[in-house]
């Protein structure tokens, strides 16, 4: 009796994962239906105005700018983070001496645990102003947001990649060295192919984090509804739009906010699913 009950409750808990995910889609859609009805899909994602009507009634809402802001800031983040994180992972596994490996490795792991809001504050007060001095434009900009996001995911990506690389059997590496391979050739031909799953996995997870990140970006992207004509101009991303304007939104605007959340969730869901399907198929 207890046996059956336990099985049933654990099954229910597992099913809950599905229920929550479906629930997120359902609830977001339910609240977004007015905006979906008024603006459609294609029109919504290609419209760049976000204007509340007279007396907070109605208005014209389009998601183009925050969608682009999200995609661009994530793109910049990944372009910046991937090479550096791979460098750190290779450094930590194949270059650093034993004495350096442990402290640097632990530092990286701890940095991966720091709440994202800290990265945002640092970007606001220190990194953004520095970028402004270097490249002109504004302190809070698409570039600042992308780079802060990148810096935020670097330790995370590096730590997972390092763990994946460390699973490569020593004897496999040795047998490549024993054929006269250089260190780089061993990394390229043996370690990366062997640890491919874990390394790509680290990138996919980081991509997911960057796409949905709010706090690291909210401080530094500027939060203005404007298309950035250069990297050093401010703009807005979907999470930041939600963080800044959700609580004060009127009826139709709130519906448009839910629509934005639904689109963000869709983007993240599709990206992760595609990445899992192509790169991370169950090896079993």
């Amino acid at each position: 009796m207890f046996n059956r009950l336990f099985r049933l409750s654990s099954y229910t808990a597992a099913l809950l994962v599905l229920v929550i995910l479906a629930g997120i889609f359902g609830v977001l859609y339910y609240y977004a239906r007015d905006a979906i009805h008024d603006f459609g899909f294609w029109h919504f994602i290609t419209t760049s105005t976000w204007e509340v009507g007279e007396d907070d009634e109605g208005g014209v809402f389009g998601g183009l700018i925050p969608i682009l802001g999200t995609l661009f800031s994530t793109g910049i983040a990944m372009l910046f983070a991937v090479p550096i994180a791979m460098g750190i992972a290779v450094f930590l596994t194949e270059i650093a001496t034993e004495k350096l490996k442990a402290p640097v490795g632990i530092a990286i792991e701890l940095l991966a645990a720091i709440p994202s809001i800290i990265y945002g504050m640092w970007g606001l007060f220190y990194f953004g102003p520095m970028l402004q001095r270097l490249f002109g434009g504004q302190s809070n900009s698409l570039l600042t947001a992308g780079l802060v996001l990148g810096i935020m995911v670097i330790p995370f990506m590096a730590a997972i990649s390092r763990d994946a690389i460390n699973t490569t059997p020593a004897v496999l590496k040795e047998s490549a060295y024993a054929m006269g391979a250089t260190r780089f050739e061993v990394v390229k031909d043996v370690i990366f192919p062997y640890a491919k799953r874990g390394i790509i996995g680290s990138m996919v997870l980081s991509l997911g984090r960057a796409l949905g990140e709010t706090m690291a970006v909210a401080f530094v992207i500027g939060g203005v509804f404007r298309f950035p004509h250069s990297l050093t101009q401010p703009t807005i991303s979907i999470p930041v739009l939600l963080a800044n304007n959700f609580a004060e939104a009127g009826d139709l605007e709130l519906s448009a906010m839910f629509y934005m959340a639904l689109i963000l969730f869709g983007i993240s869901f599709i990206t992760i699913t595609i990445a899992k399907f192509f790169f991370l198929k169950d090896q079993k």
Partner: peptide, 28 residues
């Protein structure tokens, strides 16, 4: 098949934007 499906969904859920979860809970 069910367990593999849930495992995959759980991974996707781990990557769900945290703000979206906030919006979802606001809704319910």
């Amino acid at each position: 098949a069910f367990a593999r499906f849930i495992r995959n969904l759980s991974d996707v859920m781990m990557s769900a934007p945290s703000i979206v979860i906030g919006v979802f809970i606001y809704g319910i």
